[in-house]
């Protein structure tokens, strides 16, 4: 029974790795779509989310099945409960990617819209943070998880900078539409960072048993 459980747990980890690859792909696509104002790619991105939704449900069912059938303890219990939690965070990251992609048709129709340097930087930072988060989770790398926690400050700072600049130009109706979309895009990129933070905190829990949520320092 123990050997079978270990195999099933490895299989579950494999499915989570597959889920994380899909989430990285959808975020990459959404960033590319917004940067290039590529409406076709944006539409593909929205459709792609269905696969991730299916994968999320599959992982959750498998994890609950393992809990029910094997009543795992200690490191196994921490891992499975964490998989259930991060599975939800990864799915929400995909939703953020969809929200970003859904802004592309409007911005593309404006003709004069250019993605700002700050927004581009923010998007690239989120992609890199997500990559580190996925690697930290799949490789059980505690130090990389701690780096992810620190990286969120960069995203937050860029987000506030973009908000401040956008709010100052809301008087003009044309610019208001454009800048509200920018704010929404920035907000969703910032949320990707928040979900990465949640996942990194859960990685710390799996590896060390420490719950660091709501604490400022690791």
């Amino acid at each position: 029974m123990a050997i079978k459980f270990t195999d099933l747990l490895e299989s579950l980890r494999g499915r989570v790795a597959r889920m994380t690859a899909l989430v990285q792909q959808i975020v990459d696509q959404s960033v590319e779509a917004i940067v290039n104002l590529d409406v076709n790619l944006a539409n593909d991105t929205v459709q792609f989310d269905n696969r991730i939704d299916e994968e999320e449900v599959f992982v959750e069912k498998q994890a609950i099945d393992l809990l029910a059938r094997y009543q795992p303890a200690a490191c196994d219990l921490r891992l499975i409960t964490t998989i259930i939690k991060v599975n939800g965070d990864f799915e929400r990251i995909a939703d953020c990617a969809v929200n970003i992609a859904q802004r592309v048709p409007l911005l593309a129709s404006m003709g004069d819209y250019l993605v700002s340097t700050d927004l581009r930087l923010m998007a690239n930072t989120a992609v890199a943070t997500l990559r580190d988060t996925v690697n930290a989770f799949n490789l059980s790398d505690l130090s990389l998880a701690e780096q992810v926690l620190k990286a969120d400050d960069v995203l937050d700072a860029l987000y506030h900078q973009i908000i401040t600049e956008s709010l100052s130009s809301l008087e003009s109706e044309h610019r208001a539409n454009r800048d509200l979309s920018t704010i929404m895009v920035a907000k969703n990129i910032e949320r990707i960072g928040d979900h990465c933070t949640n996942i990194a905190e859960d990685i710390v829990y799996v590896q060390s048993g420490r719950i660091i949520r709501h604490l400022h320092a690791v």
Binding site: M1, A2, F5, T6, A73, A74, C75, D76
Partner: peptide, 9 residues
């Protein structure tokens, strides 16, 4: 050792 025993390893 405790973890390995409790997890059936």
């Amino acid at each position: 050792q405790t973890e390995e025993y409790i997890t059936g390893r």
